[in-house]
Design a protein around this nucleic acid. Structure first.
Length: 203
DNA sequence: GAAACGATTTGCT
DNA sequence: GCAAATCGTTTCT
């Protein structure tokens, strides 16, 4: 894996990340997740992107070099992790929405067991917030280099089939782009907007 | 300086 | 199935 790999159109990187594994190394162990669902976010031209209104303290990582993490806190409750793409100065990132824990499941389960509820392994990293917890990512990991010692990405076999659909939870302005990608038959996040669930796995 | 708003999850009805 | 939780960042007065 080379830095240049991330220096491509964000949608391309997003597609190639499906099926790849992400490993985060922590003092208490390592957790590896195989990505099954991602979302691409562009820069100023993408109304749904955090970078739409320019560079701020929060999205600063998006403007940095590719191959790093952009982590932010959402709703004061949980974290969402992104993989930054493009050269410095070009804000774009791939939101990691769902994955399957393939190594370090015990540790991931421990991190999620704060509620005392043991769930099916497949649910360990299904959903953006859960994925971040499973990997042990917090705001402190914003800017973490995936090409460094703390974390790394390993490509999986090229996906036979990739499905695409509108992104989740974004304003209508950016909903027309089919930039949410996922692997068929995998752990995909079930999006339940407070009012009325839809989209469980819209083909 | 103050108010509004989320790239969601969980729990209760 | 539906509504609440919860806080940093952004935006407005």
């Amino acid at each position: 894996m080379h830095r240049d790999w991330f220096d491509r159109p964000v949608l391309e990187v997003a597609r190639d990340l499906l099926g790849a594994t992400v490993t985060v190394v922590r003092p208490d162990g390592e957790v590896t997740v195989r990505l099954t669902e991602v979302e691409a976010y562009g820069g100023p031209e993408d109304p749904a992107s955090h970078a739409f209104r320019g560079r701020t303290a929060r999205n600063d990582s998006m403007f940095g070099p590719g191959g790093r993490l952009y982590v932010y806190r959402h709703l004061g409750l949980h974290h969402c992790a992104n993989v930054v793409t493009g050269p410095p100065g070009t804000p774009a990132a791939v939101l990691l929405r769902s994955g399957e824990v393939v190594a370090g499941a015990g540790l991931a389960a421990a991190r999620r067991s704060v509620a005392g509820v043991v769930r099916r392994p497949v649910d360990l990293a299904r959903g953006p917030g859960r994925l971040a917890v499973a990997l042990g990512l917090t705001l402190a990991d914003d800017g973490l280099d995936l090409l460094g010692p703390g974390a790394h990405v390993v490509l999986g076999p090229s996906a036979d089939e990739v499905l695409a659909g509108p992104r989740v939870g974004v304003a209508p302005a950016g909903a027309d782009l089919a930039w949410r990608l996922w692997l068929p038959g995998s752990a995909v996040s079930t999006w339940r907007p407070g009012s009325g669930g839809r989209r469980a796995a819209d083909r």
